[in-house]
């Protein structure tokens, strides 16, 4: 119970800190302009315009949320160590894993604020153009949030052992690789490879997160059906992958000399 309280206290401070960051405000302004801008770009008939609007808006939500999640998470722990704000906290009976989970919860809180702002703008546009709300948004956006949760956990783990610029770069790289995992694997394996390379590529393939799984943008844009079982499995997959990365981050941070 005290562990949850500790995570909550650290998370609250991190969230307030994240929401006050200038980079967050700039990105939010950028996202709102982009969402409104996407409405003016699509000058086609009602049906096509709504498709383009949905497509562009969801892409914008994914892009900005991912950048916010990576940027805020990747600077969280190194920033605490650089500014020495970690000492008074860790000197209390707070376990290192609680600190990591608190920082993560705070960063995801900031992402949630950002996503809520973008979702509100998107909803406003949908109601203005289509006159009704596409209910698919209620599962497309949570899955986008889950994708950013994986990215944030990945960035957090990287930031526990790498400098923040390197961690940021690696997070963005892994985000791209995670979204292109299957075509990249097929492309690499279609060429002749040595036995060692094949094992290495397959291992990396199984270790990389499958971020494309969380993208249900097309289902909303084209009104396609998604099996319920697949949705549940993907949700469980997202939670497992996030938990595994947070465990790794906690183990790395527990061995870190402060």
């Amino acid at each position: 119970m005290q562990a949850l309280r500790n995570i909550g206290i650290i998370g609250r401070i991190t969230m307030l800190e994240g929401a006050r960051k200038q980079v967050f405000h700039v990105l939010m302004l950028f996202a709102v302009f982009l969402i409104f801008g996407s409405a003016s770009l699509a000058k086609f008939d009602q049906h096509v315009q709504m498709k383009m609007l949905n497509d562009l808006c969801l892409f914008c939500v994914f892009l900005v949320s991912s950048i916010v999640a990576i940027t805020i998470t990747v600077t969280g722990v190194p920033g605490e160590m650089e500014q020495k704000t970690v000492y008074p906290v860790i000197a209390k009976p707070v376990a290192r894993w609680q600190f990591i989970c608190g920082k993560y919860a705070g960063a995801m809180g900031t992402v949630a604020i950002g996503m809520a702002i973008m979702a509100a703008t998107f909803t406003f546009l949908q109601l203005s153009y289509a006159g009704h709300l596409d209910t698919a948004m209620f599962y497309v956006l949570p899955f986008l949030y889950l994708e950013t949760a994986i990215l944030a956990a990945l960035a957090l783990w990287l930031s526990t052992w790498a400098s923040w610029p390197l961690a940021w770069f690696l997070s963005v790289l892994l985000c791209l690789l995670g979204n292109l995992k299957f075509p990249l694997y097929d492309s690499l394996m279609s060429r002749p490879q040595s036995g060692f390379n094949r094992v290495a590529i397959t291992t990396l393939y199984h270790l990389l997160p499958n971020l494309e799984s969380f993208n249900f943008k097309d289902a909303m844009v084209h009104h396609l059906a998604v099996p319920n079982a697949y949705l549940w499995q993907t949700a469980a997959y997202g939670l497992f992958y996030t938990a595994a990365l947070l465990t790794l981050a906690s183990l790395t941070f527990a061995r870190k000399e402060l």
Partner: peptide
Amino acid sequence: AQAAPTQVAPAQTAAKPAAY
């Protein structure tokens, strides 16, 4: 999933075949 591969999500507005 095997029995009903085209089962739709509850949030689906217009149920259409998966390979639409």
